[in-house]
């Protein structure tokens, strides 16, 4: 009797464990570390992801119902605001920073270039209430959603409750963002021994590991930390990065080390989008690094690279492009969801 119970509970435990590792709703690549996001507090479900996807693409989250998350985070550029050095928000107001890419967010411990946001769930509050982004309030967003039949339906399906709350709204948006996993670039195939680098890519990979991987380390191509990478201060913005959050002088001009996955399509680069091309980034690291007191020690010794070597590193960086991510239909504008509502 007791034994049966034990076996029963063991079986159910393994089912739970198995589900987590092999959750079909999100890929957790074998070579990635353990995610930071606590899925047990917001268990993924198809209907919640679907709701989150609708919310992500719906301008209803903004004051004038014209700006959606996707306005500044578009899929084909790995969910950044392509071609804008500083992002544009409501009524074309210009933001303070270059929009970030959105991918592999489950492995990130803080958000924004200065880490001002401590949890993925809370991220959406920032653009929603920013007067130059969406200029809305969470309480008003919830009341707009509540009076919209599509959303009472979607929330009911997702949470078993058609009473809409801020918590559920944020958790659903997180769910969609958590599914944005990029792990199928050529680099990944090489790591899985399904293909191999060209000679040039391979040389670039070696140089990358020597000069860049101390901050942009594999497999996520970021160490999830804040570093001063020697950029000069743009005095029209006076953006001191991490210092804005901690008020600690040693954090001056430190920014979140960004991932380099899909870097081919996420231009322009850096927190203020100052570089349009990867070749400019390479020239920064070899020639323009400002040796200030708080420069990250990894860059104390100048990086020396010939122009051929720079081209090789760029060739390697292009192997981080993941077309199956950039064109994954599961992340597209959810026409079918919005059409469904137009029909009835």
């Amino acid at each position: 009797m007791k034994r049966k119970l034990l076996i029963l509970s063991l079986i159910s435990l393994t089912i739970v464990a198995f589900r987590f590792i092999d959750n079909p709703l999100i890929v957790l690549p074998k070579i990635f570390p353990k995610p930071v996001y606590d899925f047990s507090k917001n268990p993924l479900s198809e209907n919640k992801i679907k709701l989150g996807r609708a919310l992500f693409y719906d301008p209803i989250l903004s004051r004038n119902n014209m700006i959606s998350c996707a306005s500044c985070h578009s899929q084909f550029s790995a969910f950044t605001h392509v071609d804008h050095a500083l992002s544009h928000g409501i009524e074309d107001k210009i933001g303070f920073r270059n929009s970030t890419t959105l991918m592999n967010l489950a492995w990130q411990s803080s958000f924004m270039r200065d880490g001002a946001i401590n949890h993925l769930d809370m991220q959406a509050l920032a653009p929603i209430s920013n007067p130059v982004e969406m200029d809305e309030s969470m309480i008003h967003v919830v009341s707009k959603l509540q009076s919209n039949q599509l959303y009472t339906k979607l929330f009911y399906k997702a949470f078993g409750d058609s009473v809409i709350t801020g918590e559920h709204t944020l958790k659903a948006i997180s769910q969609f963002m958590l599914t944005l996993v990029s792990c199928n670039s050529k680099y990944d195939s090489v790591m899985r021994k399904q293909t191999s680098f060209t000679e040039q890519e391979n040389n670039g990979y070696k140089l990358f590991k020597k000069n860049c991987a101390s901050c942009h380390n594999e497999p996520l191509f970021t160490n999830d930390e804040f570093r001063n990478n020697g950029l000069s201060l743009d005095t029209s913005l006076n953006d001191y990065g991490r210092y804005r959050v901690t008020k600690n002088p040693s954090d001056s001009l430190k920014f979140k080390v960004p991932t380099l996955r899909n870097i081919e399509f996420s231009y322009p680069y850096m927190h203020d989008g100052r570089f349009k091309k990867l070749s400019q980034v390479m020239n920064h690291y070899t020639n323009e690094v400002i040796k200030s007191k708080y420069l990250s020690p990894e860059l104390d010794k100048s990086i020396v690279l010939s122009s051929n070597e720079k081209v090789d590193i760029i060739a390697f960086l292009l192997t981080l492009t993941d077309k199956s991510f950039l064109f994954n239909p599961q992340y597209f504008y959810p026409k079918e969801i919005f059409l469904e509502s137009a029909k009835d």
């Binding site: 917001n42 001002a116 809370m122 509050l125 920032a126 801020g166 958790k171």
Partner: peptide, 23 residues
Amino acid sequence: NVSGAMGGDLDPTKGMYWTWQSG
């Protein structure tokens, strides 16, 4: 403060959460 979105009295619609910097 670092536990993400929560409901009830902690719901973000209560206006007791800083939006531009978590907490």
